[in-house]
Amino acid sequence: MCSPLNEKLRNIINKILPPGVTLLLIFVAWQLVCSLGNVPKYMLPSPQDVLGAFQKDWQLMLHHARVTLLETFIGLFFGILTGFFTAVIMDRFSIVRKMIYPLIVISQTIPTVAIAPLLVIWLGYQMLPKIVLIVLVVFFPIAISLLEGFASVDADTVNLMRSMGASRLQIFRYVKLPNSLGQFFSSLKISVSYAVVSAVVSEWIGGTEGLGCYMTRVRKSFSSDKMFAVIILISVLSLVLIWLTHVLQRASMPWDKINRKRSKL
């Protein structure tokens, strides 16, 4: 009755088809406005123009995308690392949590776009200021979600582990860490898209390579078709990263699928 293939097909019809149709309608309307309305290309390029821009500049965009992605990955790596260790230390020593937690929260009101130029002044035009900005952006959601995950552990479970003679490290490894994975991945999904946007923003400010630099150049030459193309490319990159995070989550939390299926019943 309900084979996996059938289920997949139904999934496509239910979830992917409706927004797909909407998107198609928007593209058709957009193309019609451009072809019939006599809108100048530098103000609103048609979907066809954007496709053309992709064709023409594909190699160049790919080169810049590689730079942006590299910055994103390095920034994510160090952002997760610092977020993780901060969360662990805040969880272990409540005095540290009391000292820095409110400050971390308040620091989030500082607009990252405003720090980016400062970072360029301090750290130059190379990759470093971009990576630092991503670390600053990613650090917060990761640290907070992990800390909440560690703290939401069931007290009785911890008592049970203690009655078995488990050490602090063992309790962390067998209870706290797996308990916080769900929250960690939820915030990682937000973080990856933040990271891409931060990389692009800091490339606007200064630099010679990356999608942000490419964007600044095409904007200055009023090549709106290329502008649209690069915006779409950035969105697609973020989507791919979010999807990769999802795949990683599935692989590292095999119990999650079953628990979710049970709660649906």
Partner: peptide, 25 residues
């Protein structure tokens, strides 16, 4: 602690471990 086994009211099986890994813990 760690000398006498103790089973609490709720089953307290860790949801992220299979039954055999829970039992082996």
């Amino acid at each position: 602690s760690g000398k006498i086994s103790y089973m609490l009211q709720k089953d307290m099986l860790l949801p992220y471990r299979t039954i055999e890994d829970n039992v082996a813990l």
